[in-house]
Nucleic acid binder design. Structure first.
Length: 192
DNA sequence: AGTGAGATGGCCT
DNA sequence: GGCCATCTCACTA
């Protein structure tokens, strides 16, 4: 079942945790690939020093974060990698969930750890060729190049690990906030 | 295994 | 000019 837009309008931490186990669909040309979300981070908008919209900062890059929840937000980082986010809440609350790692579902391959190409926000976008072209898409529409569904995969609260976010040391105290969530013992998670 | 540098563009002061 | 929600490669040991 495809996730409705209302799914994304909830509290950002709730959405982040709920996204674990959901299925991301990526359409390129005639093919559609699927991947289970296994690692995410919450970015809490205007009051979060680690968030691009901290203090209501509004640039060309962050336009889509000010859309309603359920849109994609893709940005370029370090001049060469892209990061995929799902916007949450409403226009007045520019918050988002960063998709840090997914588990590919199409190929029945027994991947060795060194061969995993989707365990990190930059690597997963490179693997699925997700770029700024995928910014501002409506994730609740099956016609979008990116959309998200629930295939019935169950995740219990005990399987969700919380810890500080990666790569935000500059954000002071906020760097310690437990806003990174991942599935316990999942091999596709970027790091433990 | 662990550390350090480099690639490279947008946004900041 | 400097920093960044990253990753890879080359080096140490």
């Amino acid at each position: 079942m495809i996730l409705p837009q209302s799914f994304y309008l909830d509290d950002t931490v709730t959405v982040a945790k709920s996204l674990l186990g959901k299925v991301l669909h990526i359409k390129t040309g005639n093919t559609e690939r699927r991947a289970r979300i296994v690692e995410v981070e919450a970015y809490l908008g205007v009051t979060d020093p680690a968030c691009h919209t901290f203090e209501n900062r509004r640039t060309n890059r962050t336009q889509s974060m000010y859309l309603q929840g359920g849109h994609s937000y893709v940005y370029l980082i370090y001049g060469m990698y892209h990061c995929l986010n799902f916007v949450t809440r409403t226009e007045a609350h520019p918050e988002a969930v960063l998709i840090r790692a997914v588990q590919p579902l199409d190929v029945e391959s027994h991947l060795k750890k060194k061969d995993i190409k989707t365990n990190g926000p930059g690597k997963l976008c490179r693997h699925y060729e997700i770029t700024r072209d995928h910014d501002g898409l409506r994730l609740w529409k099956k016609s979008s190049a990116l959309y998200v569904s629930d295939d019935g995969f169950k995740v219990s609260a005990k399987q969700i690990i919380s810890c500080p976010r990666i790569g935000v040391d500059y954000a002071g105290e906020a760097a310690q906030w437990p806003l990174r969530f991942y599935l316990k013992e999942n091999v596709f998670v970027s790091r433990v």
